[in-house]
Amino acid sequence: MSTAPIGSVVWTDLTVKNADNVKDFYAQVVGWQANPVSMGDYDDFTMQLPSNNQDVVGICHAKGDNANLPAQWLLYFKVANLDDSISQTQAGGGKLLSAIKHYGSQSRYIIIQDPAGAVCALFEETP
């Protein structure tokens, strides 16, 4: 479980058509190291700090459930209750861009668009 407080940015990733090229770009520009994450028939990547191999961001292919995501850095905000945040998103004029997804058995998230058109993810840790 994360010790990050509610409202914190707990992850960031970038979804693009060619993650292989883009991860190489960021490896050279920023200095990150690519760590492949198998998605079955292709790899997405976590990008790691070279000093300690800590994962800091993800770079993903725009395939499957991620095919329609914009090519922008996607912030994951930690929320207390995902269902409540989904209700507030819809009540406030936002849109749900994905179904609720599970990340292992410890968390779930959804990708939303705010009324101004900005896209982010809402992330809830589950007991």
Score class of each variant (00 low, 15 high):
residue 4 A to Y: 03
residue 6 I to E: 00
residue 6 I to C: 01
residue 6 I to G: 01
residue 6 I to Q: 01
residue 7 G to F: 03
residue 8 S to D: 07
residue 9 V to Q: 06
residue 9 V to H: 03
residue 10 V to S: 05
residue 12 T to H: 11
residue 14 L to M: 11
residue 15 T to V: 15
residue 20 D to M: 10
residue 21 N to K: 15
residue 21 N to F: 08
residue 22 V to M: 14
residue 24 D to H: 13
residue 24 D to N: 12
residue 25 F to S: 05
residue 25 F to C: 08
residue 25 F to E: 05
residue 26 Y to L: 02
residue 27 A to L: 03
residue 28 Q to M: 04
residue 28 Q to N: 09
residue 28 Q to I: 01
residue 29 V to T: 12
residue 30 V to L: 09
residue 30 V to D: 10
residue 31 G to P: 01
residue 32 W to A: 09
residue 34 A to D: 11
residue 34 A to C: 05
residue 34 A to M: 05
residue 36 P to R: 09
residue 36 P to D: 15
residue 38 S to T: 07
residue 38 S to V: 01
residue 39 M to R: 10
residue 41 D to W: 05
residue 41 D to R: 10
residue 41 D to T: 06
residue 42 Y to H: 15
residue 43 D to R: 02
residue 44 D to L: 04
residue 45 F to T: 10
residue 45 F to P: 01
residue 49 L to F: 09
residue 49 L to Q: 07
residue 49 L to K: 04
residue 50 P to E: 02
residue 50 P to I: 11
residue 50 P to K: 02
residue 51 S to C: 08
residue 51 S to M: 11
residue 52 N to I: 10
residue 53 N to D: 12
residue 54 Q to E: 13
residue 54 Q to L: 12
residue 55 D to Y: 02
residue 56 V to M: 08
residue 57 V to P: 05
residue 59 I to M: 11
residue 61 H to Q: 10
residue 64 G to Q: 03
residue 65 D to N: 14
residue 67 A to W: 08
residue 70 P to L: 04
residue 70 P to D: 09
residue 71 A to F: 04
residue 71 A to T: 14
residue 72 Q to P: 00
residue 74 L to W: 11
residue 76 Y to S: 10
residue 76 Y to F: 12
residue 81 N to V: 07
residue 82 L to A: 06
residue 83 D to W: 00
residue 84 D to C: 03
residue 84 D to T: 13
residue 85 S to L: 12
residue 85 S to W: 04
residue 86 I to L: 07
residue 87 S to E: 11
residue 88 Q to Y: 03
residue 90 Q to A: 00
residue 91 A to P: 13
residue 92 G to P: 13
residue 92 G to D: 00
residue 92 G to I: 04
residue 97 L to Y: 07
residue 97 L to P: 00
residue 98 S to G: 03
residue 100 I to M: 08
residue 102 H to Y: 15
residue 103 Y to G: 15
residue 103 Y to P: 15
residue 104 G to K: 00
residue 105 S to H: 10
residue 105 S to G: 14
residue 107 S to P: 13
residue 108 R to N: 14
residue 109 Y to G: 06
residue 109 Y to K: 00
residue 110 I to Y: 01
residue 111 I to D: 00
residue 111 I to W: 02
residue 113 Q to E: 15
residue 114 D to Q: 11
residue 114 D to P: 13
residue 115 P to C: 04
residue 115 P to Q: 07
residue 117 G to R: 06
residue 117 G to A: 06
residue 118 A to W: 09
residue 121 A to R: 13
residue 123 F to S: 09
residue 125 E to Y: 01
